[in-house]
Design a protein around this nucleic acid. Sequence first.
DNA 1: CAAACTAGTTTGTAACGCAAACTAGAAAGG
DNA 2: CCTTTCTAGTTTGCGTTACAAACTAGTTTG
Lengths: 102, 102
Amino acid sequence: MSADLRAVTTLDRLIHEPARLLIVTILASVASADFLFLQRETALTKGNLSAHLSKLEEASYVKIEKTYKGKLPLTVCKLTSAGKTALKSYRQQLQSFMEQTK
Amino acid sequence: MSADLRAVTTLDRLIHEPARLLIVTILASVASADFLFLQRETALTKGNLSAHLSKLEEASYVKIEKTYKGKLPLTVCKLTSAGKTALKSYRQQLQSFMEQTK
DNA sequence: CAAACTAGTTTGTAACGCAAACTAGAAAGG
DNA sequence: CCTTTCTAGTTTGCGTTACAAACTAGTTTG
């Protein structure tokens, strides 16, 4: 009766990475977030946050807009609908695994 | 009131890897399992299964005994108590994250 | 006795994650 | 001024990883 545990190996690795799971989870809870806000919330270094955001952007999970706040750079991040869908299905898959194996 | 989401970044990477999560989850449900049984259950290639088992053994999460079944090699794997503890706490940490963010 | 099979291990390689170094421009100090 | 420091990020360097493919050691079959 137990379903297919092997499905766990098909989890979206982009979201499975803990730092990125944290990022997209935070982004899912707000309309948008700027770079420094994300840095404070995640406690990632700027370097790593930047790299992870770039990957999420490449995958079209996050949209990144570079503007200015006065004269200072301002990077604003938003989860795309593809990103929302990906997170939702990641969570469903993981929850299903957890329930099958509890 | 919400606890610390950042904790997700401290998940045990050894178990977080989907292939290994699958392996230890299977091992947690049986007294012991031989290599070929694990290969069938996980659908991993022999090479990858071997490599993942070696890592789990290095971490002392799994004990590996090489014997013979008749004249053929037989590799028997067992989750150690350290492995059980690690899996349990991984699951707790993950479940806690999921509940905080649902 | 050579070919094929069994039960694994080792190797090759592209991608990854992290820390440290770097960049471009703005504000502050002397 | 002009140089030092600060802000907001990006890029680089590098050890580690995960996977597939090649390999190994021994066994059975034709």
